Amino acid sequence: MANRERNKKILLELVKQPDNSTCADCGAPDPDWASYKLGVFVCLNCSGIHRNLSSRVKSIKLDFWEDALVEFMKSKGNANVRAQYEKAVPVYYYRPQQKDCAVLREQWIRAKYERMEFIGDTKYPPLCYTTGEGDLTLFFHLLKNFTKGPKAVISIKDLNATFQPERIGHPHGLQLTYQEDNHIRNLYVYHESPEEIVTWYNAIRAARYAYLKTAYPTGSNEELIPKITRNYLKEGFMEKTGPLQKETFKKRWFILDSQDRKLLYFKGQLDAEELGVVFIGTESNGYSVKECVPKNARGNKWKCGVLVETPERQFVFMCEQEREQKEWLDALRQVLFRPMAPQDYTSKQGCRNYAHTHTLTFPDKRKPRVSEVSSLQGLRTAPCL
């Protein structure tokens, strides 16, 4: 009969090894589950996905392990299994992390172990994603307008895709962000098939990677891969007042895009177009971020202030709780303390041009367009949430 304590001790020693000390699928630290069909150590969240795949999982600490299964785990391990199942992962294919949404993690696991897409004999990379044909644009068709042609033509140059299931209200919700007439434009889509929406996401990443390789021919993969798509550093509601700091505070939805050094604000979470953009430079260029208590302001329900100072003006924002205030300060300072790259100066100039156009063309009473939330199957139109 197997020695329960001895086998548990062996497994705990195995999981301390560098290759096994993080989840084989999402990188979460200290995995305490294992797939004894595959021979990998995984976290609790990923173990549930493996169980749905009939992958046979056990708790390292709580379950009984037979001698033969322990020997199998010793012969495999995360590194050996990755060498087999991740042999041919395309450089642009997104590898989910611990905090990523469920659909990304599940489809990554299914792609590896169920569909075996990366073992070498693989459908990746699809030809149309990598040849750079045409001008590298994506065409999205709304079926209700199909006879009228494309609803939107989105240049790959400025396109970003990020999963937003909670905000969109669908587990497979994807936010597409791009430039249109000097404004940031949002399009919200989803697909009922989790595999299909993740395939779209990686198709966009493939096209973006092809564009970046053309635009930055000397750039290494280490430099280009983080630029393919990115999650936003911080999102959430804050209250905002005007430039005189005497105007009534209004609740706005904020997004901090650390790559472009931009803090964007919208009237609501699903607005198609931003109300304004604040460029976040460096301290040496006259930018600062700190706590504040506003004076002479009206209508602020929240009391935890954030002051963003630029060479042109001061911005006062209010958070509901101290925790949110600290998170915004920390996120803004991450951008503030990062040296500016040459392309950041172009982005900064774009923000200045935008501010000038915004002032002349769109007064404060301008109403933002509310984005459509659509089913991505062409796209199929769905009711706005």
Rank of each mutant, 00 (worst) to 15 (best):
N353E: 14
K123N: 09
N231H: 04
Y211W: 15
R167W: 02
C304G: 00
Q84N: 00
E166G: 08
F118G: 00
K37H: 04
N182K: 09
Q325C: 11
F140E: 06
H172W: 04
F315S: 08
L11T: 09
D135W: 05
Y345N: 10
R205F: 01
L379G: 07
S284M: 07
V373F: 02
F362W: 14
F249P: 01
Y216V: 14
N160I: 08
Y232V: 06
H356E: 12
Q377H: 13
I154D: 02
I156Y: 01
E195G: 08
F249T: 03
E372P: 03
A210M: 10
Q349H: 12
R4H: 11
M340A: 07
R51Y: 03
F315M: 02
H172Y: 15
R230F: 06
V40K: 02
K303N: 04
A111L: 03
L104V: 07
Q97M: 14
N7E: 05
E283I: 05
K250S: 11
L11G: 08
P342C: 06
E223Q: 14
N353I: 04
K112F: 00
Q325T: 04
E239S: 03
Y354G: 05
P294G: 01
T359A: 05
N285S: 09
R261L: 04
P383V: 03
E117G: 01
L256S: 06
S220I: 07
Y201A: 05
G305A: 06
C23I: 01
Y265Q: 05
G173K: 08
E274T: 00
D260N: 13
V373T: 15
A34S: 12
K295P: 00
K61V: 10
F266Q: 05
Q269I: 13
V91D: 07
S155P: 12
L385M: 05
M73A: 11
L138F: 10
G236W: 08
G169R: 07
R185Y: 07
L12K: 15
N20M: 08
S258H: 14
Y93I: 05
K87G: 00
G242A: 13
L379W: 09
A24F: 00
C26Q: 03
T199H: 11
R6W: 04
G268F: 10
K151L: 02
Y190V: 11
S155D: 14
E312V: 10
P368K: 01
T131H: 08
P150F: 04
D260L: 11
S258P: 03
L244H: 09
A83S: 13
V15Y: 01
G120K: 03
L233W: 04
A331F: 05
L233N: 04
T199D: 12
Q334E: 15
C128N: 10
A206W: 01
L224V: 09
T229D: 13
